[in-house]
Amino acid sequence: MIIELTELNKHKSFKKEISFTYEKNRIRYDGENICFSKPIELNGDISSTGDIINLVLQVSTELELVCSRCLEKFNYPLNFQMNEQMSFDEDIEDEDIIILNNDKLDVTEFVENSIILTLPMKRLCSEDCKGLCQNCGTNLNIQSCDCYKHDIDPRLAKLKDLFLAD
């Protein structure tokens, strides 16, 4: 969605409500396709106070992620608030304020960048996900395997003898 900022630029105090939903299939991030299972819903407002334009949006959607432990797909609901400050004044020295070049603002670009920033570092389908067996690759959430579980690093094998000596 593109917002015309000419009104905000003319008036020193102005507020405009924003409410819309848009479809996005996927975002490419860090070599991975992050798919959306629900549309992106935006609710909030854009306002100007003096030379500063404030964009405050409540963003909600649902992503389809791949679990880092078991490699299964799962739905990850996202609901967050984003706050951005912008200005046309290039002399502002605040690092948090984005300098605008024209009167058109593409809100979807800000939203998609914020979605990427809110992604968890470790994507887990559940906190108690057991992952995959290191030997046979069985998903341990679904079934167990008969692989030998006490694989010891040969560099630490002498320590095992110390603990089992008693």
Rank of each mutant, 00 (worst) to 15 (best):
S37E: 13
S37G: 04
K38P: 08
K38L: 14
P39R: 13
E41F: 07
E41T: 10
E41W: 01
L42Y: 14
L42R: 14
N43Q: 12
N43H: 09
G44K: 14
G44A: 12
G44R: 14
D45F: 13
D45E: 07
D45M: 02
D45I: 00
D45N: 12
D45V: 00
I46L: 00
I46Y: 00
I46Q: 01
S47D: 08
S47T: 09
T49N: 12
T49S: 10
G50N: 05
G50S: 03
G50T: 06
D51W: 00
D51Q: 04
I52G: 03
I52N: 04
I52V: 09
I52C: 02
I53W: 04
I53A: 05
N54Y: 02
N54C: 01
L55N: 10
L55E: 11
L55T: 09
V56S: 15
L57N: 14
L57A: 13
L57E: 14
Q58W: 01
Q58A: 08
Q58I: 00
V59S: 12
V59K: 12
S60C: 11
T61M: 12
T61G: 10
T61W: 09
T61D: 12
E62W: 06
E62I: 05
E62N: 10
E62A: 11
E62K: 15
L63E: 06
L63M: 03
L63K: 08
L63N: 10
L63H: 05
E64P: 01
L65K: 05
V66M: 08
V66C: 06
V66S: 11
C67L: 02
C67D: 02
C67R: 06
C67E: 02
C67K: 05
C67M: 02
S68P: 01
S68T: 01
S68A: 07
R69I: 05
R69A: 12
R69K: 15
C70R: 04
C70W: 00
C70M: 02
C70T: 06
C70L: 00
L71V: 05
K73T: 06
F74C: 07
F74E: 10
F74M: 07
F74S: 09
F74R: 11
N75E: 13
Y76S: 05
Y76K: 02
P77I: 08
P77A: 08
P77E: 07
L78H: 08
N79C: 06
N79Q: 11
N79W: 00
N79H: 09
N79F: 01
F80Y: 08
F80C: 03
M82Q: 06
M82Y: 03
N83G: 00
N83E: 07
E84R: 03
E84I: 03
Q85M: 08
Q85S: 06
M86D: 11
M86G: 07
M86W: 04
S87Y: 05
S87V: 05
F88P: 07
F88R: 11
F88W: 10
F88H: 09
E90N: 13
E90D: 15
I92F: 05
I92S: 07
I92C: 07
I92M: 08
E93Y: 02
E93L: 11
E93N: 06
D94E: 13
E95M: 01
E95N: 03
E95G: 00
E95F: 02
E95P: 04
D96Y: 03
D96Q: 04
D96E: 11
D96T: 03
I99E: 13
I99S: 13
I99W: 10
I99P: 08
I99R: 14
I99T: 15
